[in-house]
């Protein structure tokens, strides 16, 4: 039963990675990256790695998105 959940999660993971890499607008990519990290956190919990999942949830889903968004705001406001 947990195998089916894992397969569904991995399909969603690859789909969100594809959206993040090949979307037309840049902001969509950055937004989708946080969902990618959240799916990765759940897969790591199923793999019984709570420390790794906690670090991934803290850094990749939280801090990196703020870094990206402030970079985008700085690179468009100069003109």
């Amino acid at each position: 039963m947990i195998e089916i959940i894992l397969m569904l999660l991995i399909l969603l993971l690859v789909a969100s990675a594809a959206i993040a890499l090949f979307s037309k607008k840049l902001l969509n990519s950055i937004i989708t990256l946080s969902i990618f990290s959240a799916l990765l956190v759940i897969i790591l919990i199923i793999f019984q790695a709570p420390d790794l999942a906690l670090a991934e949830a803290v850094i990749a889903a939280g801090i990196t998105t703020s870094f990206f968004i402030i970079t985008i705001n700085k690179t468009e406001g100069v003109k």
């Binding site: 937004i31 946080s34 959240a38 956190v41 919990i45 709570p50 999942a53 906690l54 949830a57 803290v58 889903a61 939280g62 998105t65 703020s66 968004i69 985008i72 705001n73």
Partner: peptide
């Protein structure tokens, strides 16, 4: 494992607030 959920809830809040501020 609930700790992970708690921390993820906190950071989802921060995330969406930053996006809304943008």
């Amino acid at each position: 494992f609930i700790d992970v959920a708690l921390v993820y809830g906190v950071l989802l809040f921060v995330d969406v607030l930053v996006m809304a501020k943008y």
